[in-house]
């Protein structure tokens, strides 16, 4: 029976292909495309004074986004998301490199140990950071005891952007580390060693030999970090004390706090377009072909 089916599918590759991608196409259609269209539709509806949504088409919601305050939140989100991505990269690269080169048979274990904390709830870990970063918390107290900070210092970490940045890097480090490690691990060690034997200076070697070879990993890692960080609302809310708000907080504000779904939908559309544009430009400029296949 199976043999007959196989033969049939061999003769009709189109059917085979449809069967293989049919289910995921359906999932994408109904859970990505249709919901996006619904958001698009909501973004042009009117909200009346009592908070009810009327089926009256308008571009009002988009117009009200033209506001310097939204603009600055957007700029802040981009800055923090880019900062998170770059810090993740700067931190994950040496770590991944060290593990690949010197990890030996413990390589995989070392990687696992980094990922492991992400198996316990993200929320629990974020709340733990509140207590590490607070004014009388472990980190500032230790720095004071060691003498790095003067006893009367005015350094504050919590409820400001450093805390947001630290915890976002903490949260998304895995997403950068895994692709980088995978890419580095794929390189054969002799290539890397040969480069150093040729007397290439370390930074130059990194820049001109190693980085181009792991470009796929860098691309994947940066996109995987950038996207969730730009939409993040829990970390800026909690670590930024609802002062250092990002685009995700505004979505939360529009949808949940002010109950203005059309405005929220318009924000979501604008944000999606901006993110897609950034990623498109990024992949275009770094990847040669600009298609997403470059990822791997």
């Amino acid at each position: 029976m199976l043999r007959r089916i196989a033969a049939f599918l061999h003769r009709h590759p189109g059917v085979y292909t449809s069967l293989m991608i049919g289910p995921s196409s359906a999932v994408l259609l109904f859970l990505v495309a249709v919901p996006t269209l619904i958001i698009l539709y909501f973004s042009v509806l009117t909200r009346d004074s009592s908070g009810l949504i009327q089926q009256v088409l308008t571009l009002e919601n988009y117009a009200s986004l033209w506001d310097p305050r939204f603009f600055w939140v957007l700029v802040r989100s981009l800055a923090l998301a880019l900062g998170t991505t770059m810090l993740c990269f700067l931190v994950a690269l040496p770590l991944a490199y060290w593990i690949t080169m010197y990890g030996g048979r413990w390589k995989n274990l070392l990687i696992f140990l980094i990922i492991l904390p992400s198996w316990t709830s993200y929320l629990v870990r974020v709340y733990a950071w509140v207590f590490l970063l607070r004014d009388n918390g472990l980190i500032l107290n230790t720095l004071e005891t060691v003498g790095i900070l003067a006893p009367d210092h005015q350094v504050r970490l919590l409820f400001d952007w450093p805390a947001v940045l630290i915890v976002m890097v903490y949260s998304y480090l895995d997403f950068m580390l895994i692709p980088l490690y995978a890419a580095l691990n794929r390189l054969d060690r002799p290539t890397l060693e040969a480069a150093s034997d040729l007397g290439a200076r370390p930074l130059r070697r990194l820049w001109s030999i190693t980085l181009p070879m792991i470009r796929g990993g860098i691309l994947a890692g940066s996109v995987l970090v950038f996207v969730p960080s730009i939409g993040e609302f829990l970390v800026p809310g909690l670590m930024g004390g609802n002062k250092v708000n990002m685009a995700g907080n505004l979505l939360d504000w529009a949808f949940l706090q002010t109950d203005n779904w059309p405005l929220g939908a318009a924000m979501a559309m604008v944000l999606t377009v901006i993110i897609l544009a950034i990623i498109f430009i990024y992949l275009r400029s770094v990847g040669k072909q600009g298609t997403l296949e470059r990822f791997s």
Binding site: F131, R134, L158, F159
Partner: peptide
């Protein structure tokens, strides 16, 4: 001058005198 805009989450920080 406001450290944060919080709901009841401020309780632990009041206890620890932050």
């Amino acid at each position: 001058h406001v450290s944060a805009y919080l709901g009841a989450e401020v309780k632990p920080l009041l206890i620890t005198e932050d």
